[in-house]
Design a protein around this nucleic acid. Structure first.
Lengths: 340, 340
DNA sequence: GTTGGCACTCCCATCAGACGAGTGCCAGAC
DNA sequence: GTCTGGCACTCGTCTGATGGGAGTGCCAAC
């Protein structure tokens, strides 16, 4: 049984431990929080909480430290998300409204998130896979060298160079441009590559080879999920505040280099809920000392990517959750605007 | 006077210290390197080297550690660049040849460089300022919404959205496209913005407003040196091997967040020479414990950007210098190819 | 100029002891 | 039945002393 006061005690322990990074004892607890009971009572509650696995004693004569299970209960039951201050809200909106393109949005967001939370922030670039083709542009750099530019509904722009065997006249190029766009505009990117398949047969025979080259590269760019794996990271310096270097900082630094690992950490969180993964709950045993607070983003219900923060299990969950949610909402809104 | 054997002793000290991270004594030195003299002799040389400020004794009964001045002499006089192994060369060329666009080149290079050197690698994105305009594309997303795409000689592509007051017909757009390209193609980007200035007056009056909007955004994109300040960083996890966290790792982690600081660290190294900045020689006193090995890159003699590695003063200078030079050459070559 | 010997310095690892924060438990109060 | 004050106990940490050892500087001999 976990009654109300025990919850209060747990919350107090979590808050104090997060603030001081030191095991918290019964006496200090009563002093710092107006619990209205004596240290002895708190000790009884602590013994019960420990019995149930919510807190833990590093050694017999030390204070208590929350366990992963304790943080979990704290997050599930107690955390009322700290609302962002209006100053913070304003900072978010003015910063992100000033972004000039998609990369800029991502980079500004990740930076912002790390500053708001004083943690390491991670933002996944919007995936291509759910977006549609808005326009394909073919630009002749030289008669036999084209630049293909693929503009997607998310605002993402992909570019590719193509070498042609035979030169292509301007008029032919224009025809081809129309044909390609007719075939792909508005089509989901996954389907667009297939939609181009017939094109080489549909054009005049003398253009077939060139068209084939173009279609090949274009299809490759469309099905290239490389950018699905792109993430931006910021705030690594915040790791310096960690206590234990070898068990906490080093594994995380290594993980930050591996974008695939980061994506797995962020997970496929739904666009609405903020997901909290605490310590061992995560997929990597080396990262048992770190927690992840993440959520998805994207206009409406379309999940375009995830963003979040990683930090020590001993972190400010309410604050981080609020910041993650706020940034995700602003990013979603901006992507939506660019998409009308 | 620093005679030949003393140089040998210094080199041996540097090499051993780099390898072991521990002060090196006279006895161990003679054992590990075939110096052909006795420890006592080496001690005499060490005393002289210390007198001249090349090495330093942490405490009376400890071995010697190179000073910044000692590393400097080591780098200037002794380092024969380790040639890259053929396996390494092949790894570099196959990796970088597989890059699909400019961002990809930069990202692959930085990753490669950090892996080769096991240090933190930094690559500056090519500056816009020295590049010329290759093509400007105007794409109508909706009748009143254009996407401007600016293709530069370095392969860089900038994109901007423009909202127009009044709709623009396809034919008008085509005219405008021709006019813009006639004014700017091949022009240095710094001059291109100015070259566009007259355009609104040269078109038909009913297009003047739209043209003005387009020109404004385009000029802004051209003179936007934001991307001059972009850098890619990789290999942060290698910091984990550092010994002293507070004096060495933390300041560097903080510096890595500030791209402006990084750019200053990289400096404006000439495209040919590899610059080595050791400890206090650098511009930041907080980074007195870190060295920078950097060089410029760019096809021919055009300096498009810098790249390099940062690490502890106690680093493998010959190896890092060789890797930095090799990567810079490959990057230059690739940029050159894309530029014909 | 080089070498072997030797006394000296001083860091570091180890250990014992004092200290104190924090606990668990118990008897008594509300 | 729950809370509280008291008290003995535990155990990590801090302090100071001690010994070992790596490395030095100097000197006399080659």
């Amino acid at each position: 049984m976990v009654d109300d006061r025990k919850l209060d005690v747990l919350r107090a322990i979590v808050e104090d431990y997060v603030a001081t990074e030191e095991p918290v004892g019964s006496k200090a607890l009563v002093e710092r929080h107006g619990l209205g009971v004596s240290p002895a009572t708190v000790r009884n509650d602590m013994a019960a909480l420990e019995e149930e696995g919510y807190i833990h004693q590093p050694h017999t004569s030390a204070g208590r430290v929350p366990t992963d299970k304790g943080y979990r209960l704290f997050v599930d039951k107690l955390a009322t998300l700290k609302p962002m201050s209006t100053a913070e809200r304003r900072a978010i909106s003015t910063l992100l409204d000033g972004a000039v393109d998609l990369d800029d949005v991502v980079q500004k967001s990740v930076r912002l998130l790390s500053q708001l939370t004083r943690q390491v922030a991670i933002v996944q670039y919007p995936t291509l896979s759910r977006s549609t083709v808005r326009h394909v542009e073919l630009v002749a750099l030289t008669p036999t060298r084209l630049m293909l530019i693929l503009i997607l509904s998310t605002g993402r722009v992909e570019q590719r160079l193509v070498e042609l065997e035979t030169a292509l006249a301007d008029a032919e190029l224009a025809e081809l441009r129309v044909a390609v766009n007719r075939a792909t505009a508005g089509v989901q990117i996954a389907a667009a590559a297939a939609a181009l398949g017939d094109l080489p047969d549909a054009v005049r025979p003398e253009q077939a080879d060139s068209t084939r080259s173009i279609v090949t590269v274009l299809a490759e760019a469309m099905s290239d999920h490389r950018s699905d794996e792109r993430v931006a990271v910021s705030g690594t310096a915040n790791l310096a505040r960690y206590g234990d270097f070898d068990t906490a900082v080093r594994p995380l630094l290594e993980a930050l280099e591996e974008h695939v690992v980061l994506l797995k950490l962020l997970g496929e969180s739904g666009a609405d809920a903020v997901t909290v993964r605490i310590g061992h709950e995560g997929p990597y045993s080396e990262l048992a000392a770190t927690s992840v607070v993440a959520t998805g983003y994207g206009p409406m219900d379309a999940h375009l990517g995830s963003l979040g923060v990683v930090g020590p299990t001993r972190m400010d969950y309410p604050g981080s959750m609020a910041a993650v949610r706020a940034v995700a909402r602003y990013v979603s809104r901006i992507l939506d605007e660019g998409n009308q």
